[in-house]
Nucleic acid binder design. Sequence first.
DNA 1: TTTCGTCCATAAAGGGTTTCATTGGGGTTT
DNA 2: AAACCCCAATGAAACCCTTTATGGACGAAA
Lengths: 338, 338
Amino acid sequence: MAGVSIATVSRVINGSASVRPDTRRRVLEVMEQSGYTPNAFARGLGLNTMQTIGILCTDSSDLYLAKAVYYIEQNLRAGGYHSILCCTGYRLENKKSSLDLLLRQKVDSVILVGSNFIEADDADNQYIRDAAGQVPVMLLNAYFDHPNVFCSLCDDLGAMRQAALSLIDSGISDILYLYNSRSYSGRKKLAGFRSACELRGLSETDGLQQYYTGSSADVDGIRAFIGRLHDEGLSFHAVIASDDILATAAVKYARLSGLKIPEELSVIGYNNSILALCCEPELTSVDNRLEEISRQLVKTLIGTLNGTAMPPSTVFPGRLVQRGTTALPDPVQSTAAS
Amino acid sequence: MAGVSIATVSRVINGSASVRPDTRRRVLEVMEQSGYTPNAFARGLGLNTMQTIGILCTDSSDLYLAKAVYYIEQNLRAGGYHSILCCTGYRLENKKSSLDLLLRQKVDSVILVGSNFIEADDADNQYIRDAAGQVPVMLLNAYFDHPNVFCSLCDDLGAMRQAALSLIDSGISDILYLYNSRSYSGRKKLAGFRSACELRGLSETDGLQQYYTGSSADVDGIRAFIGRLHDEGLSFHAVIASDDILATAAVKYARLSGLKIPEELSVIGYNNSILALCCEPELTSVDNRLEEISRQLVKTLIGTLNGTAMPPSTVFPGRLVQRGTTALPDPVQSTAAS
DNA sequence: TTTCGTCCATAAAGGGTTTCATTGGGGTTT
DNA sequence: AAACCCCAATGAAACCCTTTATGGACGAAA
């Protein structure tokens, strides 16, 4: 207005139609000196988007998921999107209602992080299909085959199989696989462990798959659990865990039992988190490429929103990072935790 | 419309003016069966708010800050607000531009989490004052005296003083205080440590304040750093660290040097994080009441947004959680990590 | 002179909220 | 019982601030 025009300002802001250079400059000048800022709500109303993505995370205080959220947010912002975070916990009802909340907020898409039970009772996943009817739905580290649902994940099964194979091929055949059955990824990795056993004809080691049912933060409880397994006669010379906390507890168990690591007990964790570095000795752990997975997810999302056809899923291979809790022949370099 | 009215629907939705009960019911009924959802953008335009709070976090992948963000989000959502997350890193420029981004997005308030350097060069804080001119600005665990700026924090200084006093009074006078000088809270806690030394006439122990300048995630580097300090002739029988990672490294140092914990070396960490439980022995650590601080912050925020006059700052006392790395007489109970 | 393009202004959505005016019913006064 | 008043409930319309479709003005090329 101060300058000369009215809706031309809009064209200047959005760079939509052609505006004569000096007109553009004049408008920008006035905008500058008057401190004008376009109203985001009105803009949203007109464009029907506020460039906002909903991140639906079960528990962003979890070490691993927090990193996921972090990477996602970074990439989203770099792509010009805002992230609205929503922590749902693990109860289905809360997930549903939070998702509704986000959709009512008119987010452009929803990213599900740390969603367990994706394959549990398939009827439980109807809410995902419903959401996919409205916006593209992105799944981090989970697979779900449905139109308008996109996934970016690590081949946890393969990575775990590889880790188990490494141990077996180094001569250790009694391996305790430790996981939390409530965790979808824990079960997925279990399949990888089983696969490795079968490949090497160790099917009789089935008895060495144990799940821990307590709180995943109760390190000492986990340690005691392992101790009880041993006392009950279970014999094992290696522990593979579905996350670094469980593995850390195994290391503590070994220390308190006087077992030498890795001579008498090898331990492999998962996620390659900071916990792996806090261990003494440092923990061998599987790096599941969280940063790459996250980046790819956002890349796929933005491509989709721009109308580009994107592959419905991308899978990255895992990577075993060897440190002090194993003595594997494989000359994998030790690397900083991700 | 389907029912009978037009703007009455608005009243029903907002519960603003009085609507006859049966009319309300009829409207709700139609809304239900027609699957009507008010358009969030239009709503925002009319009300000039979308009930959204910006969380400006330096690094939400940090164990401690991730928890902070988590608690804040939980409380905000319980209060009917959405959280838009923005990770800025530690560079001032990024903080400023991210804050602008949020304000342009018309958030109702901004919460700063993990903002170091709050008291560094005061000119650097102008952006906070500017923001406070537009919306209430909330500071988690930092103090800033300015109109429309509200703080909720733990008395880290006092808590650290108390921790140091406990050690000193148990007979240990050569204490190494370990921190990262880039961290605002690390310096604040240093003041607490100094205060304790002065109170007990231990001013000559000033030499025992050491800061580590490397990456805070490089546990082994920190351990080596402590080793060098020792090799250079520094003698200490206790380590107090400004976070649990540093303390964990101290424990690793002791183990590798063959020092018995706590007989030959006592260690106290800070934050009472999961790392404290992963340590062997478990780490004595200061709990700085993150959950309460966060809850109070959101409470203050929502009160302020509702027009209630709120205290500009609330301070919680810290709490020393004693575990295996100290042998203090103080009969404080061991507690689960927060 | 006509035609075509470029640049810009006018005006119509976009979908709610809110003020204001209207209606009607119940209680009070006479 | 009639007149009056007041208040609760509702509808009509202005408003919030952009975007975008439409069309007009103007200059250049044919």
